[in-house]
């Protein structure tokens, strides 16, 4: 079998931020308690002119800026999100057109709560490996919704990353991938509704932890690897606490998790979460580094990846697009009332 892996990648995070303490104050909660219990200090906020299509386009253009691929050689675009701008009408067509990859192009939008982006990576891997396409772009992006006053409001944020999957000049080889899926309704949003609902503490043990841990163990089983074999570990991060706890349960150290852990400073970017974590790791990774990745999507499932960074990362022109750390640093705060206006909270569901 031919190698398949990441040829290029790009990220995008909106510039606006709101502090968890500002949200807490708006609802009369204790800011310190909220911030420390969730492990989220601030989160990114999309401006009124940003949505999953614009974030996806910016991330995909960043990925293309870092490689010499003719957009016409891209055979597939899959966009994973739970906040696609249209319920019916693909985001992927907008992305395909905006990166000049149309019209000979396979496109579909994915939805699997927070793991739709990693599912898109798996689809692109299969298409590339089977030589149905030369390159596929997998995107995970969200401008996630949270009802005003809901606990989700402290973390639900916006951002995304795009990965170009191919067979040549791979900067990071994907050695192995596997998934673990059951029907577990821990979090959902009904058709036509503006905000999601969730099962509270049910989202923990039977949902996030069971699926991530089972899948991680399966992956390490088939890859015949152990936590200490990895330089970095990236987990889905619905808050600042879960990824650290799941890492500990699996035997990873906080040091392995640190570089890919962004939720405390940008919030939960949902379909962008694991993807941005991986992008952040690739921003600094060196040849030979091994990366463990496990996403989680409510409903529920996990996709895991065993990745090895190659020599090509040395010549990879990171500087042709912003690093994740640069996107995080570039910020402007908004207050809760501006946030409410921008996120359209003043209209009833």
């Amino acid at each position: 079998m031919k190698d398949v892996g990441i040829v290029s990648y790009g990220a995008h995070i909106p510039r606006l931020r709101i502090k968890s303490s500002d949200i807490a104050n708006a609802w009369g909660k204790n800011p310190e308690t909220i911030t420390s219990s969730l492990g989220v200090i601030e989160k990114s906020v999309p401006s009124p002119d940003q949505d999953v299509a614009t974030i996806s386009v910016e991330a995909a253009r960043a990925a293309l800026a870092r490689c010499n691929i003719d957009p016409q050689d891209i055979g597939a675009v899959y966009v994973g999100s739970e906040s696609h701008p249209y319920a019916v009408k693909p985001t992927g067509t907008i992305v395909g057109e905006a990166i000049s990859a149309t019209p000979i192009l396979k496109v579909a939008d994915y939805e699997f709560a927070c793991k739709a982006g990693t599912a898109a990576i798996q689809t692109c891997m299969a298409l590339v490996k089977s030589e149905m396409v030369d390159y596929g772009i997998a995107i995970g992006a969200d401008t996630s919704q949270a009802a005003p006053g809901d606990a989700l409001e402290y973390a639900a944020s916006a951002g995304g990353a795009a990965f170009i999957i191919g067979r040549e000049k791979i900067i990071a080889n994907i050695n192995e991938t596997c998934s673990f899926t059951t029907d577990t309704p821990d979090f959902w949003r009904r058709e036509g509704r503006k905000y999601p609902a969730h099962g509270g503490r049910f989202t923990g043990a039977p949902a996030y932890f069971r699926h991530v841990i089972s899948n991680a163990q399966n992956l390490m089983g088939s890859a015949n690897s152990k936590p200490e074999d990895y330089n970095y570990a990236v987990f889905h991060q619905p808050n600042g606490k879960f990824p650290l706890r799941v890492a500990k349960m699996l035997g990873f150290t906080p040091d392995q998790v640190k570089q890919g852990l962004l939720c405390p400073i940008i919030g939960n970017t949902y379909s962008g979460s694991t993807m941005l974590g991986l992008a952040s790791v690739l921003d600094i990774a060196e040849p030979g580094n091994r990366i463990f990745v496990a996403s989680y999507g409510s409903g529920a499932g996990s996709d895991a990846f065993d990745i090895t960074v190659t020599e090509f990362i040395k010549e990879f022109p990171h500087e042709k697009a912003p690093l994740v750390s640069e996107l995080i640093e570039k910020k402007q705060y908004v207050d809760y009332s501006t946030y409410a206006k921008y996120r359209d909270l003043l209209y009833e569901d």
């Binding site: 009124p48 002119d49 940003q50 949505d51 299509a53 614009t54 386009v57 910016e58 253009r61 701008p85 249209y86 907008i94 905006a98």
Partner: peptide
Amino acid sequence: TFRKIHEDGYIGAIYYGYK
């Protein structure tokens, strides 16, 4: 940069373009 320019109310099309 690629942004939403405006949208046709809550049910109409969304128009994208350059800013």
